[in-house]
Amino acid sequence: MNLAEELALLAYDDSGAARVGQPALGYGLAGALLAELALAGRVDVVDRRVAVLDPTPPQEPAVRAVLARIAADKPRKPKWWVAKLSKGLTTQVLDGLVGAGVLRREKGRVLWVFPRTRYPSPGGREPEAETEARGRLVAAVTGDGPVEPRTAALGALVRAVRYDRQVFPDLPRSRVRTRLKEFSEGDWAATAVRKAIEEHQAATG
């Protein structure tokens, strides 16, 4: 399960409804794929632009595709890549989770007119991968000291898309804010997500 898939699972409730709107979720998923590449040592930010450090293709198809796109383009700022990669990404990630049997696709209509697609789990319960991700995040926020890098990256992305209250409803707000801020320090992918969301809101607000 990659970071984008974990973030998508967290972003949908047990009924299969999205709790994070667009374009924020798309930006967050794009940032998650960039974070995967950074954690694997494939890319980093050099002179404020995303640079390929190791062109070796990752095993994960979605992550491999992003690395290929970055390698084929000129150096771009992280926020540019977040916006570019976000297009159609939510559907792509959800399709992958449906194909793997983690979620199912449920199409219907609101008031018999407006189409609506939900993504509940097949068993009607929280997917095991989501439960595991939540557990890691809660342990990281309630604990002290260093946090495993993938969990820290996921926490930084949750903060970037402003979804921390829903993920940590029972934890003290001050504790959550402090720990997630620590996770976000130096995380250029999550920072790019946050900036992209802020710019979108400024442009549309």
Rank of each mutant, 00 (worst) to 15 (best):
G16Q: 12
A17C: 13
A8E: 09
L9A: 06
R19L: 14
A11R: 03
A18D: 11
G21Y: 11
A35K: 04
G28F: 09
A30M: 04
G28K: 09
A24R: 14
R19T: 13
L33S: 04
L10R: 02
A18I: 01
A24M: 04
D14C: 12
Y27E: 12
S15Y: 15
L29Q: 06
L7M: 11
S15I: 11
A8W: 04
G21A: 15
A17E: 14
V20H: 09
A18Q: 13
A18W: 14
L34R: 05
G31I: 08
A30P: 05
G26K: 03
V20I: 13
A32H: 00
Y27F: 15
E36S: 10
A32V: 01
G31N: 07
R19Q: 15
L33Y: 14
G16R: 07
A30N: 07
L29D: 06
R19D: 12
Y27M: 11
L37P: 08
E36V: 00
A18K: 11
L34H: 08
P23L: 01
A17D: 15
G21H: 14
L25F: 02
A35S: 15
D13T: 10
A32C: 02
L29E: 07
L9D: 01
G21P: 09
G21Q: 14
V20L: 05
A35Y: 00
L9K: 01
G26D: 10
D14N: 15
D14I: 11
L9P: 04
L34N: 07
G16H: 07
V20Y: 15
L7Y: 08
G26Y: 05
A17Q: 14
A24F: 00
L10S: 03
A17V: 12
Q22S: 11
L29S: 08
P23H: 04
Q22D: 11
A30E: 03
L33W: 12
G16W: 11
L25K: 04
L9N: 01
P23D: 03
A35L: 00
E36I: 00
L25Y: 01
L7A: 13
G28L: 07
P23E: 01
L37N: 04
D13A: 07
S15E: 15
R19P: 06
A24G: 14
G31D: 05
G26C: 09
G31W: 03
L37F: 09
A24I: 00
Y12D: 01
A24W: 00
L34C: 09
A8C: 11
D13M: 09
S15F: 14
S15H: 15
Y27A: 10
A11V: 05
G31P: 06
L29P: 10
A30R: 03
L9Q: 02
A30S: 12
P23K: 02
Y27C: 13
A24V: 00
P23Y: 06
G26W: 03
L29N: 05
E36A: 04
Y12C: 03
L10V: 08
L10Q: 06
L34T: 00
G28A: 09
G28W: 06
L25W: 01
V20W: 13
G16M: 05
R19G: 15
Q22N: 08
A17L: 13
G26L: 04
Y12T: 03
V20P: 03
E36C: 09
L33R: 10
S15M: 14
A24T: 08
A17R: 15
L37D: 05
G16N: 12
L9Y: 02
A11I: 07
P23Q: 05
G16T: 04
G28Y: 06
L7H: 10
L25N: 07
A24Y: 00
D14W: 14
P23C: 02
L37S: 06
L9G: 11
L25C: 11
